[in-house]
Amino acid sequence: MIELQHVTKLYPASPRPALDDVTTEIDKGEFVFLIGSSGSGKSTFLRLLLKEDDPTRGTITVNGKTLNGMSKWQVPKLRRTMGCVFQDFRLLRNRTVAENVAFALEVINKPHRTIKRVVPEVLEMVGLDGKANRLPHELSGGEQQRVAIARAFVNRPLVLLADEPTGNLDPETSEGIMLLLERINRTGTTVIMATHDYHIVDSMRRRVIELNGGQITRDQSRGVYGVGR
């Protein structure tokens, strides 16, 4: 599903690699926590999977397609198979909840009929039915993140990438978000989530990949956040 072979990423501004000879494999349907301190390479890991950036060395394969040397015109196709959720939600402020979700389908040319059908479905799934016509600022943080998750999931991606999705939320709200991500994972979608939230990691007992200084220092199938904290 996702394969990294000896991936190294150097940024011009820094002498230390953001990722240093990383090799790993993530299977379809897995739920993976990506942990590590700030600057350990978690975000770079996710950026490379999205082909927002190219690795300096090594090869990356997603859904059987090698990202190295992929032409710019093929990148949109790759991204249609992936959903993204961020700490800061990234919703469009002047569009309603339903419009925010529909936006993701409109811009990839989905027919109107499909959009009309799937947007209410996915809003119900994330627990926002009845709030379709609210604007983002009328919602709580947890609800806004649910909109973002709905937008990321509405096109049924094979992979959902979440970069600290609970970073701005209180523990109780975070729990709700995690239940939602688990539910999405159960539909067969691979979920890769970068996080600092040890409560969540410890309680879910899923695969944990720990990055430290750009290297994988731990890869446990039913891991916890770590003992040394």
Partner: peptide
């Protein structure tokens, strides 16, 4: 930039953007 960033992430074609 908010719109175009999202368009980029959800895989809108370059022409569309």
């Amino acid at each position: 930039r908010n719109e175009t960033n999202i368009m980029r992430l959800v895989g809108a074609s370059r022409w569309y953007t």
